[in-house]
Design a protein around this nucleic acid. Structure first.
Length: 298
DNA sequence: CTAGGGATCAGCT
DNA sequence: GCTGATCCCTAGC
């Protein structure tokens, strides 16, 4: 485990700007979480800006509530929300207190703590580093009913002595391709490693982020959640930073035209673009009439 | 493609 | 108080 007081962090002023300026600057930075189970760090490859009360797609658009209160606070804090009943998403708050802008962290490459990240996402790896079927593994439903029940909680303190910070960073050079693995098993492990933090819910699961991190100050020395500039792990960001792509945000139905999604072009850890589901005519069978407001296009 | 899952909030009683 | 539509999604067919 690193000394959390010594970790280099982005300064609070970094976040004291519009989210649309902060977001692209976050690409290549290292978001990390030092939990009792160990350290996991991700190099950010995909983010989205949300502009608070001037942005119809922002959780803060309709003003302050219990859920989004952190967004109205000072910059450099984490806003974590629970989504679709299954997973968490983390944002970093921008602009001074009173303005509720934030950047959603959508995807990253795991550059440290991959073993712990795999355990959180898929289950327990064995001593050879191969991944066993975990609670979320596919195709095991009927085989052995006891598989999931036999797995201990992912963050149980018993594994803290097994996890060392720099150990898993061998694949930290750019695209964690998982070199050196046998061909057949390697393909499986490699594709799974690409998925470790691809997507906002997966990233939070890999990092072990949940609502208990809501409001966490990522700029404060000593805090378990932090974000560091790209140089910290000697990432080869120079080339990547020349290839920032922008486009519409994923999965939102309002203000979908604003190109406030930013990602590293060509990086395999970027999530798949999913436009929001086209708004169906209300399933309410009131009468034969559909919606006819003249604004729909074919 | 779809089912799943829980919190949230506008709008109502 | 209650209800139901919505939601910055993911895993599995």
């Amino acid at each position: 485990m690193p000394d959390l007081d010594e970790m280099v962090r982005l300064p609070r002023e970094f976040f004291d700007r519009p989210a649309t300026e902060v977001a692209p600057d976050l690409l290549g930075c290292i978001l990390w979480h030092a939990s009792p189970a160990g350290l996991v760090a991700t190099r950010l490859v995909e983010v989205e800006a949300y502009r608070g009360e001037i942005d119809p797609a922002s959780h803060a658009f309709r003003g302050r509530t219990a859920r989004n209160a952190v967004m109205f606070g000072p910059p450099g804090h984490a806003y974590v929300y629970f989504s679709y009943g299954v997973h968490y998403c983390v944002n970093l708050v921008c602009e001074p207190a009173g303005r509720a802008e934030a950047v959603l962290i959508r995807a990253g490459a795991v550059v440290a703590g991959a073993e712990l990240a795999r355990r959180r996402r898929y289950g327990l790896p064995d001593t050879a580093g191969e991944v066993h079927d975990g609670p979320n593994a596919r195709g095991r439903a009927g085989d052995r009913g006891s598989t999931a029940a036999a797995s201990p909680p992912p963050d149980s303190g018993s594994d803290r002595n097994r996890t060392s910070a720099g150990r898993d960073s061998a694949d930290s050079s750019g695209t964690s391709a998982g070199r050196g693995l046998a061909a057949s098993d390697g393909r499986r492990v490699r594709s799974r490693d690409l998925d470790l933090a691809r997507g906002p819910g997966r990233l939070c699961q890999a990092l072990g982020i949940d609502r208990s991190q809501d409001g966490a100050d990522v700029c404060a020395p000593g805090g378990p959640l932090g974000i560091s500039p790209p140089s910290v792990l000697d990432q080869p960001v120079a080339a990547a930073l020349g290839a920032i792509a922008t486009g519409p945000r994923v999965g939102i139905s309002r203000a979908a035209d604003r190109p406030w999604r930013y990602w590293l072009a060509g990086d395999g850890h970027v999530s798949i673009y999913r436009p929001s589901k086209p708004r169906e005519a209300r399933p309410k069978p009131v009468s034969g009439r559909g919606i006819q407001d003249g604004t729909m296009s074919g």
